[in-house]
Structure formats: C-alpha cells, structure tokens
C-alpha cells in the first residue's frame, strides 16, 4: 500500500533544486514530485537531472521533439519501466503524494491502479469492447453485473466512444478503427477511476472531432484527477493544459504555466520549438 500523506496546501519552492535560469511555475499543490532524476536504458542515459513538480487536479503537458524522453519519464511515474530489464533510475527520486514510489516497501500493483496510463501505441485487448473496459474492474474484484455495466457505459461516454459502439459492445475491440481503439484504451483506463491519468499522445490517431471530444474530456477530468499528457500538437497543449514542460535531449528545459510558455517562454530553445523552428 502506498501510504497517503497529507500534503500542505501549497508547496514552495515549486521546482526543487531547479537551475537558476529555469523559471518556477506557481503550483498550488504538487501531486507528483520528480527530483533530480537520471534514467538509463543500459548504458544509454536518457533522462538527465529532471526536476519537476506536477500539480494536483490540473493538466500538465509534456512537449518536446521525438526521442527526448517524454514517454520514458511518463512510464517512470507508474513504474512501467520495471518491465524493461536494462532500464534503471540511476539517480534521484519520484514521490507521489510525498511517498517515494521506488522505495522497497511500495506495492507496485496498488501504485499502478492509482496511476492509470494510456499508452502511446494503443493496445486494446483481444476481447470484446465490453470486456476491455470491464477488465480493470474485474481485476479489482468487482463482480456485480449492474455496477460493471454502469461503469462501462460511463467510461465509454467519457471517451466519446459510446454512441459508436453501444450496439456492438460484445464484438472484439480489434474490430475497431485505430482512433476508436485509442478511445477504447482511454475508456479502459478511466473505468478503474485512477487518481492520476498519464496519457501518451492520446489523440495521435484521432480526427478533429474525436480530438475535440477527448480534449473536452481532459478538461472535465481535471476536476477530479491529476493529468499528464504527452503531445506533439502544440495547439492541443495550448488548449487543454494548465502547465507545460518542454524537454529536449533528456533534459527539462522549461516548465511553466502553459499561457506563459506559449506567449513568453524564458528559454530560446522553447521558443524555437513551439514556433516550429526546430524539432
């Protein structure tokens, strides 16, 4: 069990040990604290000294060029990198609600139930649409049919998929289009009501209409959840995130209010990236 520690309403300074030139964002309450994090796949170091406080009940966007380590950092937050043999956090710590998630006593299964994830490569299970969404609930030990039915419908509605699939809930999730599969994976993650939702490019295969729906969903979700979203779409980051972190070559270059990042970034690299001059 991850013990829940009471966090003070305001944490400051908000970015711990951040080098002087990186401006500090005003964060009301940090849900996730990443401190001086180094991460390597074998000998290949991918993250370098990342310091970041991710606020509770808000949307934080990770942006940056391909290969800069966004997915890697995201997968550190629910310890998904444990599955990769050579992968190691070589230095630093990650705390969620004040608890070091890599400490020996931490129950990783419980951690992952609380920290949901939508993967970059959508991965529906070869089960029916219904069973896909119900999977996490059944794992959690819920057996009451009416409860599961209700949660399935609610999650599919949230993911803007209900109308398209309500008549074929019991056909395979593999029969859906790429974009529908992506929304199915979102619905599946929401069904277990995690506290934190990590979304790795959740709209990469979606058309503008579905994208708008998912963005709307993200805005609603932040009432209750802490959300981290990786995106290559600058407009999307602008539209639906409260804070934005810009990564480049495994380093956090800048982290601030989204409005600030997009209107008046402190770093030249950030500005060049968001205006499309590199990356």
């Amino acid at each position: 069990m991850v013990a829940t520690l009471e966090m003070p309403e305001t944490t400051s300074p908000t970015i711990v040990n951040q080098p002087e030139q990186v401006p500090k964002a005003e964060i009301e309450r940090a849900m996730i604290e990443i401190e001086q994090l180094d991460f390597a796949y074998g000998a290949h170091q991918v993250l370098h000294g990342v310091n970041l406080n991710i606020p509770a009940r808000a949307v934080t966007a990770f942006i940056g060029p391909s290969g800069c380590g966004k997915t890697t950092l995201l997968r550190c937050l629910n310890r998904m990198n444990d599955l990769i043999d050579s992968a190691r956090i070589t230095q630093g710590a990650i705390r969620i609600e004040g608890v070091d998630i890599n400490a020996p006593g931490v129950d990783v299964v419980d951690l992952r139930r609380r920290v949901g994830m939508v993967f970059q490569k959508s991965n529906p299970f070869p089960k029916s649409i219904y069973d896909n969404v119900a999977y996490g609930l059944r794992i959690a030990g819920i057996t009451k049919r009416s409860l599961i039915d209700e949660a399935v419908e609610k999650s599919l509605r949230s993911a803007a998929l209900w109308e398209e699939v309500k008549d074929r809930l019991h056909v395979s999730g593999y029969g859906l289009s790429g974009g529908q599969q992506q929304r199915l994976c979102i619905a599946r993650a929401l069904a277990v009501e995690p506290e934190i939702v990590l979304m790795d490019e959740p709209c990469s295969a979606l058309d503008p209409i579905a994208t708008a729906k998912v963005e709307e969903l993200i805005r609603q979700l932040k009432e209750q959840y802490t959300i981290v979203i990786v995106t290559h779409n600058m407009q999307q980051a602008g539209r639906c995130s409260d804070h934005t972190a810009f990564f480049y070559l495994g380093r956090l270059i800048e982290f601030d209010q989204t409005a600030k990042i997009f209107s008046n970034p402190a770093q030249r690299q950030t500005e060049e990236y968001i205006t499309g001059r590199f990356g």
Binding site: N78, M80, L83, V109, R112, M117, N123, P124, I139, V192
Partner: peptide, 15 residues
C-alpha cells in the same frame, strides 16, 4: 503475445 497486452493489464492494477 504482444508486450502491449501485458503492459495494458499491469497498468490497470493487475498483478
């Protein structure tokens, strides 16, 4: 069996 199925399941809190 694709690795994504394992990750997807683990990410939902399955042991």
């Amino acid at each position: 069996v694709p690795q994504g199925l394992r990750e997807g399941s683990l990410a939902l809190g399955a042991s």
